[in-house]
C-alpha cells in the first residue's frame, strides 16, 4: 500500500530550471525514507513537492493521509510561547480545550520541554528550538512526516538526542517518514530505505541493508567509508 507516489514527475521551480524529469518514486506506508545527496541537487525540493508547496510541472502526485513538514529553520511563531506553538495546529483543527491540553502536555513531557514551555522562541537554544518544532509537527498525529535536515546546525550531543527523538516518533506514531539530510549517520541509523539524488537523476534507491549490493550506492558512500577508516585507525 503506497503512502506517497510521484509518477513521471517534472520537478523544478521555473520552466527553465528543471531539476528532475521523469521522476518516479513510491513510498510505502510506515516506511522511513532518507533522501541523500549533495547540496543543491534538489532534496528539499522533493519534500516541497510531496507537501504540495511546489506543484509538479507535469506528472502525478498521489498522497494518502495527512502530512506535516518540519522546516530546516524550525519557523516557530515568535509571538507565541512554546506551549502555544505546539497547541496551534490543534487549535486550527478545532480540537476542544481539554484534548489540546492533554495532547500538548504529553508532548511536552515526551520532548522534555517542561522548563521552557512558557518561553518565547527567541529565547531558546538551537536544540530546544528543534525539539519544539518536532513536537509541533507531530501534534496532529499526521500520517506522513516530512523532515527537512532535522539535525543540521546542531551540537553533536544535541544531534544524537534529536536523532533518538525522531526514531521514537517513528516507532510510536508509525507514520511514513521522509527525511532529507546530508548526514550519513542519520540516514544509516534511522531509515529503512535510502534515496540518493544526483544531478538531474536518481543515483540509487535501496534499502538500508543492501547498500553494498548496489554499485551506485556503494560508489556514493565510498568517500565516507574511507574517512571512517582513517578515523578508526587514528582513534
Amino acid at each position: 500500500m503506497n503512502s506517497i507516489e510521484i509518477i513521471d514527475g517534472k520537478i523544478g521551480y521555473t520552466k527553465n530550471e528543471v531539476l528532475f524529469e521523469n521522476f518516479n518514486l513510491k513510498i510505502q506506508k510506515k516506511e522511513f525514507l532518507t533522501i541523500l545527496g549533495k547540496t543543491g541537487v534538489g532534496k528539499s525540493t522533493i519534500l516541497r513537492v510531496i507537501s504540495g508547496l511546489l506543484a509538479l510541472q507535469s506528472g502525478t502526485l498521489k498522497v494518502s493521509g495527512e502530512m506535516s513538514l518540519c522546516f530546516q529553520d524550525s519557523r516557530l511563531f515568535p509571538n507565541m510561547t512554546v506551549y502555544e506553538n505546539i497547541a496551534y495546529p490543534l487549535k486550527v483543527k478545532n480540537y476542544n480545550k481539554d484534548e489540546i491540553k492533554s495532547i500538548v502536555d504529553s508532548l511536552i513531557k515526551d520532548f522534555r520541554l517542561e522548563n521552557i514551555k512558557d518561553r518565547k522562541p527567541n529565547n531558546l537554544s538551537g536544540g530546544e528550538t528543534k525539539r519544539v518544532a518536532l513536537a509541533r509537527c507531530i501534534a496532529t498525529k499526521p500520517k506522513i512526516l516530512l523532515l527537512d535536515e532535522p539535525t543540521s546546525n546542531l551540537d553533536f550531543e544535541v544531534k544524537i538526542e534529536v536523532r533518538e527523538l525522531i526514531k521514537n516518533i517513528h516507532k510510536k506514531y508509525k507514520c511514513t517518514t521522509v527525511m532529507v539530510t546530508h548526514d550519513i549517520f542519520d540516514s544509516l541509523y534511522l531509515s529503512d530505505n535510502i534515496l540518493i539524488l544526483g544531478d538531474k537523476k536518481i543515483i540509487a534507491y535501496i534499502s538500508n541493508q543492501n547498500i553494498n549490493k548496489d554499485k551506485n550506492a556503494a560508489e556514493y558512500f565510498k568517500p565516507f567509508i574511507e574517512e571512517l577508516n582513517i578515523l578508526k585507525n587514528k582513534l
Binding site: 513538514l69 522546516f71 519557523r75 511563531f77 509571538n79 495546529p89 486550527v92 483543527k93
Partner: peptide, 27 residues
C-alpha cells in the same frame, strides 16, 4: 515569507493566518 508556508501546511485559513501570525509579528 517564513510563516505562510507553515500555516498553509497546517491548513490555516488566510484570514486566521493574518490574525494569528502575520499581524502579531508586525505589531
Amino acid at each position: 515569507y517564513r510563516y505562510f508556508e507553515v500555516a498553509k501546511l497546517m491548513n490555516v485559513k488566510y484570514g486566521r493566518y493574518v490574525r494569528d501570525i502575520l499581524l502579531p509579528t508586525s505589531m
